[in-house]
Every structure is written in C-alpha cells, then in structure tokens.
Simulated scan of single mutants.
Amino acid sequence: MTVLARSLFLSLVLAGLASCTAIAALDRAAEPQNVYELRPPDDIPVARATRSTQLIIEVPTASGAVGTDRILIRPTPSQIAYLPDARWSEPAPVMLQTALVEALLATNAFRFVGRRPLGPSGDVALVSDLTGFETRIAPETGTNSVQIRLTVRLVRERDARILATQTFASSVPIPDTSTPAIIAGFEQTSADVLEQTIRWIITAL
C-alpha cells in the first residue's frame, strides 16, 4: 500500500469513528430522563388577616452552573457535573420562584402575590440570589450533602429602597449519591429554606 493509499485509508477510518461517536452521543441525548419538581413545604404559616400589600416575587439570580434544569453535582469545590438520568421540571431559579409564589399565596398574608404586578408596579418585590443549589460529594470522608443557599431582599418598588435583607441556608446529609437520595436531599433542604424565607417575609412586612 502506497503512502497516499495509507493516508486515505486512515482518513476514512477516523471519519467513521467520528461518525460513530456522534451517533452514540445523539443516542445518549435521546434517552429519557426522569423529571423532578420541588414543591412548597406542607407546613406553611397562615396569616390571621390579609394585608393590603402587593408582593412581587422575582426570579432569583444565579450563576450559569445553577441557573439550569440540570441537577448539579460538585465532586470537588472547583468541579461541576450533572446527574445524567434526571433533571428539574424548570431551571432551578424559576422552579424556586414558582414554589415561593404558591407558598406565599397559601399563607393568605397579602392582597396579591405574583410574578408580575397587577398594575405598573407592585408595593414590594422579593429580590433574591440563589448562590447554592447543589450536591457536594466528599469521597475522602464519605460525607455527601445537598446544600441550598438563598439571599433575599425586600425592596419597596416606588423608590427601590431595601427594606430588609436575610440569607437562608440549609445542608442535609445524604446516605449515598444515587438519584433518589439526592432528590430526597433537595426536597428536605428546599422545604427548610422556603419555610424560613416565608416566615421571615411575613414577619418583616
């Protein structure tokens, strides 16, 4: 076989391998994923009287790693991975916004709770930063946990004055890194953070 023939043969083999790799990637992408949704906690405080406040819940800001519908795993402090067989029903910040709106509506504490005001502006907006929403893996110690951290601000809309600020965080150990254990950890931590946040909002306003 001449040099030219060998080169042509090698090029065809490499092209075939690349094609197989692309097809395999497409096959993996087409595999069905389990979809999960975090719901508001059951133990929601109910106000004795409805206040006249119109409360707007904005979508929490988040980094690109967190602001997705992928379920974040952090094997090391500087490494990011995602569960291959599961995802959230919405991007994590939007899912958290939905849970907050539903939970605050259930408290009957405000005249109106929504994602957008009824008129040009609302009375108070809840502005937040979702700085932690992940599973942390520590193979050297065998301690795995789900962690959520949310910083919230109540902002008066007419003059953008910050009325109150607070950070809520929760960390729950999980027995292993299976998908059911991770989802159960997220359910527990999100319920804890949401309940803390809701009680604080009602008290602060």
Rank of each mutant, 00 (worst) to 15 (best):
V124C: 01
P75Q: 08
T76R: 08
L8A: 15
G142P: 04
S78N: 12
I182W: 05
L38Y: 03
R48W: 10
A204Q: 14
L100F: 13
C20R: 13
E157S: 06
Q97S: 01
S178T: 15
V66C: 07
I56C: 04
V124Q: 05
S7I: 13
P40R: 06
I202C: 04
P32H: 04
W88R: 07
V172R: 05
L104M: 13
L130Q: 00
P120W: 09
E37D: 08
L205G: 00
S171T: 15
P41M: 07
D123K: 06
A5I: 12
I80D: 10
D192L: 09
V3R: 07
N108Y: 11
A22I: 11
T68W: 07
E90K: 11
R149E: 09
A109V: 00
F168H: 11
A15H: 06
T167W: 02
Q147K: 05
W200D: 00
I73A: 01
R115F: 03
F112Y: 15
Y36A: 01
L154R: 09
A103I: 04
L12S: 09
I174P: 00
W200T: 02
G67K: 00
I80E: 08
R28S: 10
P84Y: 12
I57P: 07
C20L: 15
R199M: 02
L4R: 13
D123G: 09
V127Y: 04
V94A: 13
A184P: 01
V152Q: 11
I182R: 01
A47D: 12
I162C: 04
A164T: 04
A29N: 06
V3L: 15
S128N: 07
R161V: 15
A103K: 10
R48I: 08
V66Y: 08
E37R: 15
T167N: 07
R48G: 15
I148S: 06
S170Y: 06
G119T: 09
V113K: 07
R6A: 11
F186W: 05
D69S: 13
T53G: 00
D123E: 08
P91G: 03
A86Y: 02
L17P: 00
D43T: 14
D85I: 06
T151P: 02
A184E: 14
C20V: 12
G114V: 08
E140P: 02
F133S: 02
P139G: 03
V101Q: 08
G67Y: 02
L104A: 06
M95F: 05
V152H: 02
A24I: 09
I148H: 08
R136T: 08
M95I: 01
T143P: 00
Q33H: 02
G114N: 05
T141K: 03
G114S: 09
A109W: 03
E195W: 00
I44Y: 10
A47T: 13
A24Y: 10
E58F: 00
L126V: 15
L163W: 09
L194F: 05
D176R: 03
S11W: 03
F133N: 04
P40T: 06
P84T: 12
A92D: 07
E58H: 08
